[in-house]
Nucleic acid binder design. Structure first.
Lengths: 340, 340
DNA sequence: TTTCAACACGAAAACGTTTTCGATTCTATA
DNA sequence: TATAGAATCGAAAACGTTTTCGTGTTGAAA
């Protein structure tokens, strides 16, 4: 077991000072060719690598960013991670992934823990509970300490910071309009409870589309799901109490479950019922029938968020004009087999 | 913007020494009640939190572990992350997630980057390319430096370290036997290339089960997929050149794709063809028909791996008897709709 | 020979902690 | 009152770097 070698050890071994070793390794012109080569050879032999922690302490930069997501089970979030990872690694940053499990407390703990020097900045999507409580003190706290934060997808207007979102309202509007254009009039909605920001926006877009086409919004056709554990019954009830010819679901789990329930009660997809989902995830693609869906490019969101964060991190502190941007990622409707 | 306050600043402000501040905050008996309260009050007011990096440098412990996975798209790996996160957080550790993208180089870079003080230990599953090259120098290097490594799922016998696996051979054997018990004889296999360790073991289990039942192994019924990008054609060809009544697929992507192709060429699932997958992931559950599968409890694997790693980290260096364990996680067959 | 610059290197501070040990003051006992 | 011992605090080292600045040596020009 050969422990890592330090500058001090090299210095001692070669009988020079620590400074000389450091400078030699960084090719400082102050050092003579002779000693430089001697030191470098020795360092290579013992596989010297500078200690990251010491560097972090000295530079006050850790070259590490943290992404906090509510759940890892939603494929969308894993694609965001993938995007973040990609550009972060490219720029020499590491990524710490934290899961809030939709819990306010876990979100707070994670942030407080990491904000004390461990990382340089946050990329995050709000947990359900945080959105419900509307308590963002932990985030403002971090921002006030001068640590940049980029929010994505589930964001809030109560916080001033960089954001990456899609136009949930417009995407839902277009999806609904697509169904209307196909001739459907009895269009159901399977959404989340309103305090989840994106759920609210998508619900609004759905309603607006109906209104624009002078189709009355019928609350009986709208299902807002709170508990993700046992929502199959609710969907089944929706299908049995209403006579829908199309459904817009705000995520792919809801969409695929709707398909399953519809089948169970004897409806053929898409012949008897057309379904549009949200998020072009792995389920939509591999489900049979594959699901027509609003693509929400998670990789692109992650990449963009990481770029914005790292940009903020690398501008000199001199020209710190606080300019917050909100980037809107394009969505598109991917037509597959669940609509006709 | 109120920057983080340090011990030095508090000391200066209260006109005491840094040591006194530090001791006061840690409730040292050396300090008088008076000054202790004074310091603590001041610290609370200014929301003092110790700097993690400084602590890491001092303690030579970062309280951070890294998990390296080949791909985040496989739901199995995300469940492992979830398990690791869970116990790590419980024990006060942070988790850095790295994606090797099945690339040897990325695996090496990630490990070399983080091994220099940034983290305390690794949890990892080998990339395809690493398994192909059989080059594990980066891993032995890390282990030789005294940093514990726990491997899971895709492991190798060439490295001595703690491991968490399932019995791939037995699980595949049982799955195949299950099909045989149902009366099937023409059982196809959709596997990965042999250098992926788990693919090889599952293939062996399949073959062994056939042999035990005196069913000849027919290479034409075995498809080994190398390129994950365009394997649909290969599966289609398999179905057209052979007349199978059942298929065992070594992961859920292969399984769901097999269903899709089978449907496409007019076969009904499970009436004309029964299919068993591997990994009880999100696809298997939500696919319709839902997929009978070998459950490979990723959460449990992650939890176990994290526990083993943290245990290694927290034993005193005194009693360092190198004892490596290999933990085998139970699998079970989950019967769903894709078999009859 | 003197002087000055270039050259080569080392000492020390700094990042923010914790901890050991020494120093000073106070209290109580002889 | 002298003194031992407790109580209270500060100096400094240590973790591993980088970097500024100072210092000594060398060579060449005056």
């Amino acid at each position: 077991m050969r422990r890592k070698v330090t500058l001090k050890q090299i210095a001692k071994e070669l009988d020079v000072s620590i400074s000389t070793v450091s400078k030699s390794l960084r090719d400082s012109p102050e050092i003579s060719e002779d000693t430089r080569q001697k030191v470098q050879a020795f360092a290579k032999l013992y596989n010297y690598k500078p200690n990251n922690i010491a560097l972090s302490l000295k530079n006050k930069k850790t070259k590490t960013i943290c992404i906090i997501i509510p759940e890892i089970i939603h494929h969308f979030f894993t694609t965001v991670i993938s995007g973040v990872e990609h550009v972060a690694n490219e720029k020499g940053y590491n990524v710490i992934v934290c899961l809030s499990d939709e819990s306010f407390d876990k979100e707070v703990i994670n942030m407080e823990m990491l904000a004390n020097g461990s990382i340089d900045g946050f990329i995050m999507s709000l947990s359900k509970e945080t959105q419900l409580k509307k308590d963002y003190h932990h985030i403002t706290e971090v921002i006030n300490q001068g640590m940049p934060v980029v929010m994505f997808d589930r964001v809030t207007n109560d916080i001033l910071c960089d954001k990456v979102i899609i136009d949930d309202f417009l995407a839902a509007y277009n999806a609904t309009q697509y169904l209307i254009d196909k001739g459907f009039r009895k269009i159901g909605l399977i959404s989340t409870v309103d305090y989840v920001s994106v759920g609210k926006h998508r619900t609004d877009g759905y309603c607006k589309a109906l209104q624009s086409n002078e189709i009355p919004v019928d609350d009986k056709m709208i299902l807002k799901i709170e508990d993700t554990n046992d929502f199959e019954k609710e969907i089944e009830q929706l299908f049995q109490t209403t006579d829908l010819d199309a459904v817009f679901a705000v995520n792919e789990i809801f969409a695929v479950t709707a398909i399953k329930i519809a089948r169970k009660i004897g409806k053929k997809i898409p012949d008897d019922l057309s379904i549009i989902g949200f998020t072009d995830g792995i389920i939509s693609k591999y489900s049979s029938p594959s699901i027509t869906t609003v693509s929400q490019n998670g990789v692109k969101m992650g990449e963009k968020a990481a770029k914005m964060l790292i940009e903020k991190l690398e501008i000199e502190d001199d020209d710190f004009e606080e300019q917050y941007k909100t980037e809107v990622i394009e969505t598109e409707l991917i037509e597959r087999e669940s609509t006709k």
